[in-house]
């Protein structure tokens, strides 16, 4: 298959163009020496991004299913978690885990705090996405499954979730971009991510416009890559479902 015939190739081209422009800008403005530093920063950003999304993707369905089908104690626990993390700032959560947990005698690495805080934050938003998608699966599916004598958990696992999964992918794409943007906050708890490196290079070189423009381009490229990945996933997930434009 010709790569350029793929519907999402434009996104890939745009992302690569962002990275190329960032690199060109760095070389043109004498910041080429800082490129390895920036790459190391991107590494940390990517680590937090992957760790955080892993946490969010595990936590969100659990919280959503507890809120939907749990007994009253479990349900209130899930609601408490979701509302607390949706109702306060990501930065406050980050600082809270970073500064307050040591008072309980728990001292975590900044990286662990970052992944936990951002993962739980996005997971709370994700829980509402999962809940919405599960509720959007038509009632008839439940009724048919019950007519087939399936238990509640069988129905969820085999009938409802596979259909809900497709519905929630676009919303997850937005959440993952929110997560990418939120990773810039970890620079404030001493993690040397892309934003942290940008500040450092800015202080050393005083080339403020150039440094922050480069970093802006890198973030833009990264979020284009996320959009690309999610579109691919959506395409694959909707195979065989009689929905949308069909592929």
């Amino acid at each position: 298959m010709n790569a350029l015939s793929h519907p999402h190739w434009r996104l890939l081209v745009a992302a690569l163009a962002c990275f190329a422009a960032a690199f060109a800008l760095a070389s043109a403005t004498g910041l080429a020496r800082s490129v390895p530093e920036l790459l190391r920063g991107i590494g940390v950003t990517a680590t937090v991004m992957f760790g955080g999304s892993a946490v969010a993707i595990v936590v969100a369905p659990v919280a959503a299913l507890c809120k939907l089908y749990g007994g009253s104690a479990i349900r209130w626990l899930a609601i408490g978690y979701i509302e607390t993390f949706r109702g306060t700032s990501a930065l406050v959560q980050l600082f809270w885990l970073f500064f307050v947990l040591p008072h309980f005698g728990i001292t975590l690495e900044p990286l662990t705090v970052a992944i936990a805080a951002l993962g739980l934050n996005i997971g709370a938003y994700g829980a509402e996405v999962v809940r919405g998608a599960v509720l959007a699966v038509p009632r008839g599916q439940w009724e048919a499954a019950s007519a087939l004598n399936m238990t509640q958990s069988q129905t969820l696992r085999r009938v409802v979730l596979p259909q809900a999964w497709v519905l929630m992918i676009p919303a997850w794409g937005n959440l993952l971009i929110e997560l990418l943007k939120a990773t810039s906050l970890v620079s404030l708890i001493t993690l040397a991510d892309l934003t942290f490196k940008a500040q450092q290079i800015n202080q050393n070189t005083l080339q403020t416009v150039e440094v922050f423009s480069i970093v802006l381009l890198v973030y833009l490229g990264l979020s284009l890559l996320i959009t690309l990945g999610m579109r691919q996933l959506e395409r694959r997930a909707s195979f065989g479902l009689a929905r949308g434009p069909g592929t």
Partner: peptide
């Protein structure tokens, strides 16, 4: 698109540190 897909923190730094230039 650029504003929506880049962190607010970076935009904040840009406005605060770059405008004086």
């Amino acid at each position: 698109e650029v504003i929506r897909s880049t962190p607010l923190l970076i935009q904040l730094f840009l406005l605060y540190y770059v405008m004086p230039e």
